[in-house]
């Protein structure tokens, strides 16, 4: 998120509260839990790293909301580098996969039941995201982000369906043996 805050400063120097408002507008319901102080923590770290400078508006008392932040040359370079990066979040499925394998091996639980419970949880999340997406006003930038979350959940549900089929087959073969 540090990179995103830096990149937002590329447009123009800005107050912390203004950055936070822009973040929340882009994130919609996903930005709901961002507390007011967080942006200043991030900005302080960026300042310490020499990526932004902070100018206090003249003649005003020292308060965080009076400060204007701007990119340093190093900050500009970092933004340029960030834009060309192709990093992507890792799909984190190994843990659940190992849970199924371990549960089956030790006969701790029926993997098919574990898959079913996980599916219920993901469907509830899907419902939550979808309702949030439908509730967004027309033209909201956050809709596209919510759509991405929906599609990810759908992919995960499809993988769970594959898990269910595979582990059901294991069950059937065990019964036949």
């Amino acid at each position: 998120m540090q990179d995103a805050v830096l990149a937002m400063l590329a447009k123009e120097p800005s107050h912390g509260y203004h950055l936070r408002a822009r973040l929340q507008q882009s994130l919609g319901p996903l930005g709901a839990s961002m507390n007011p102080g967080q942006i200043y923590v991030t900005l302080a770290r960026l300042e310490k790293a020499g990526l932004v400078v902070c100018e206090r508006a003249d003649g005003l008392p020292e308060r965080p909301d009076r400060k204007v932040y701007a990119l340093t040359p190093a900050g500009q370079q970092r933004v340029a580098a960030w834009l060309t990066e192709v990093n992507w979040p890792k799909p984190d499925l190994a843990e659940f996969h190992l849970k199924l394998v371990a549960a089956a091996a030790a006969r701790l639980a029926d993997p098919v039941e574990l898959v079913a419970a996980q599916r219920r949880e993901l469907l509830r999340r899907l419902r939550e995201v979808q309702q949030a997406a439908l509730a967004e006003p027309a033209g909201s930038a956050a809709v596209l982000l919510l759509e991405g979350v929906v599609l990810r959940l759908q992919a995960d549900l499809r993988w769970l369906a594959a898990c269910e089929r595979a582990w059901s087959k294991v069950d059937d073969e065990a019964e036949d043996a």
């Binding site: 998120m1 805050v5 930005g31 469907l123 979350v149």
Partner: peptide
């Protein structure tokens, strides 16, 4: 599925 909201959505993104 109804009435089981966990606030999961709001917790997806932290600034850090």
């Amino acid at each position: 599925l109804a009435g089981t909201g966990t606030g999961w959505l709001g917790g997806l993104i932290g600034l850090e």
